[in-house]
Design a protein around this nucleic acid. Structure first.
Length: 517
RNA sequence: GGCCCCUUCGACUAGCGGUUAGGUCACUACCCUUUCAAGGUAGCGGCACGAGUUCGAAUCUCGUAGGGGUCACCA
């Protein structure tokens, strides 16, 4: 029997990294076993439903390379794959449970249930549905339902004994039946709850392995009870550890405490390869200890039993570091250039000169952790003129005479290549008898507007004679117009403006160009 | 609080009875160096605790502690 796994997200908002994480492991397990990976949309909560969410989830899965074999908009033999389109199926199965006495209709109102909980709280007993509707005569249940009285359908659960299931990762897990309430299967709006829909769909869709997050462990016995009621064989269960916040207690990953949106990482210039690689190291490791590997390598080596159970903290620093490694080591120069190009366009640049782009990326990629940072630093290679911050102004003013000399020297330089530029610079400082840095820093600032930039020789060589001379001219003009380190008022105003601009920029949502579609 | 699960450096992890407890990120120092990075070298730092089993426990058992999850007509 072929392995079938599934990812069953609820379309309620931003595609969650936790969804991507569980999808990754389901995908890898299915592919490794030569099986199928199914996407099922659990849209049974009308209140939290977000129409656009489904498409965004599919988009994120594709971006990560985790395209499902079956799912809404994809097709497959077991559709429909949206639970809202399977209502008749649930209805039919609920009728069967009702007929066989495994379930009953309960007519308590929300107010009544609230009162019940309050009372339980007051008396200090465990809260939860107490089974008060169980005793109602089935004929009476039917009559009231037919009369249009609002009701839910609940599972009749045993009061004594234990229900046990086998978790592939933790062994047998046993829960006292007294802890398992007569849970709602069908809501009063006719929609199924997760518990009911998930069991029916997994069975009907032929899901062989339910690989999901740890938060489902305690409700799995309830699902087992449902499988028993239907007289179905349950699938194999494996519960993955929960991704955690980087807070002191390592609580379950949450939007409040960190960025949980997969799209957001994409928008920050995190590569899908890096995100997948990072997620794969959450609770899992390569047998040979490799830490950088592709999705294909992950699938080839994947083994559910290597999953470790301690909840892994989602550490941004590690993600960014991994992304940086992809940028400078894993991907080819051409590949990185291809990825950044849309980001440059987004910033208003024209990256169509491929050789220039390659040079720019080559020199910048050891200095950037994300595509966004790379693109941002590339600005000074593409803008018409750079602007100088306060520090840059000081350095320019200090180097005025050198810049004048260099402008002349560069304009006379016959072969404008790396070696020639290097020789020129060294000859010049020797003649002037000044330290190299004293000359190079003003030049660097003139070319880029900032003191933190690649090697000057690289900058000059990449920018070429034309750009170099233009920048030098602009810098000298700026100096003449009085860019003062002698005017504290003006410097202060500049600093404030820069701080304000930086703050505004930080707030703006970063662009997300289409890349690697 | 009841129930369930978990527990190796700050973080991610290797380890599955005998290891100087290994690697990666982060951090620190040094080297390289025209700045910033990158790179190189080194360092810091861990088996939660207590019993038991065993010739021998990070590895097996039990207990304690700590952490997490869950107790909805949400998934």
């Amino acid at each position: 029997m072929p392995v079938v796994t599934r990812i069953a997200p609820s379309p309620t908002g931003d595609p969650h990294v936790g969804t991507a994480y569980v999808a990754l492991f389901n995908y890898a397990f299915a592919k490794r076993q030569g099986g199928r990976f199914v996407l099922r949309v659990e849209d049974t909560d009308r209140a939290r439903y977000v129409a656009a969410a489904e498409a965004r989830i599919i988009d994120v899965l594709r971006w990560l390379g985790l395209a499902p074999d079956e799912g809404p908009g994809i097709g497959g033999e077991h559709g429909p794959y949206r639970q809202s389109e399977r209502l008749a199926i649930y209805r039919e199965h609920v009728d069967r449970l009702l007929a066989e006495g495994h379930a009953y209709r309960a007519f308590e109102t929300a107010d009544e249930l609230d009162a019940m909980r309050l009372e339980q709280q007051r008396r200090g007993i465990d809260p939860g549905y107490d089974g008060r509707g169980r005793g109602l005569d089935p004929v009476e249940q039917r009559r009231r339902a037919d009369a249009g009285e609002p009701h839910v359908v609940r599972l009749r659960t045993p009061d004594e004994g234990h229900t046990t299931f086998h978790d592939l990762l933790r062994g047998d897990v046993s829960v006292p039946n007294a802890e398992i309430r007569d849970t709602v299967l069908l809501k009063s709006d006719g929609y199924p709850t997760y518990h009911l829909a998930n069991v029916i769909d997994d069975h009907l869709m032929g899901v062989t392995h339910v690989v999901r997050a740890e938060e489902w462990v305690v409700s799995t016995p309830l699902h087992v009870l449902l499988y028993q009621a239907f007289d179905w064989t349950p699938p194999v269960f494996a519960h993955l550890p929960l991704l955690r916040n980087p807070d002191a207690n390592k609580t379950k990953i949450s939007k409040r405490k960190m960025d949980t949106s997969a799209e957001s990482y994409r928008a920050q210039g995190i590569l899908p390869e890096a995100l997948v690689n990072f997620l794969a190291t959450m609770g899992w490791s390569m047998p040979d200890g490799r830490e950088v590997f592709t999705l294909e390598e992950f699938v080839a080596a994947f083994d559910l039993e290597r999953v470790s159970l301690g909840g892994p903290v989602f550490d941004l620093k590690r993600l960014r570091n991994l992304n940086a490694r992809y940028l400078r080591e894993v991907l080819s120069l051409e590949a990185v250039a291809e990825r950044v190009a849309p980001w440059l366009v987004e910033r208003g640049h024209d990256p169509s000169d491929e050789d220039y782009l390659l040079d720019v990326v080559d020199v910048l990629r050891p200095r950037a952790e994300t595509l966004a940072e790379l693109a941002e630093q590339a600005d000074y290679f593409y803008v018409e003129r750079v602007s100088y911050d306060a520090d840059a102004r000081r350095r320019l003013a200090a180097g005025q005479s050198y810049l004048e000399d260099l402008e002349r020297e560069f304009s006379r330089l016959e072969f404008f290549d790396d070696d020639a530029i290097d020789d020129l610079l060294h000859d010049y400082v020797q003649r002037q008898a000044v330290p190299l840095g004293k000359v190079l820093m003003p030049l660097r600032v003139a070319l880029t507007g900032t003191s933190q930039a690649p090697a000057v020789v690289d900058l000059v060589a990449i920018m070429g004679r034309g750009r170099t001379l233009t920048r030098l001219g602009q810098a000298l003009q700026a100096i003449q117009e009085g860019l003062p380190d002698d005017d504290p008022e003006r410097l202060k105003a500049e600093a404030e403006a820069a701080a304000k601009a930086a703050a505004a920029k930080g707030k703006r949502r970063p662009p997300m160009p289409a890349e690697r579609s």
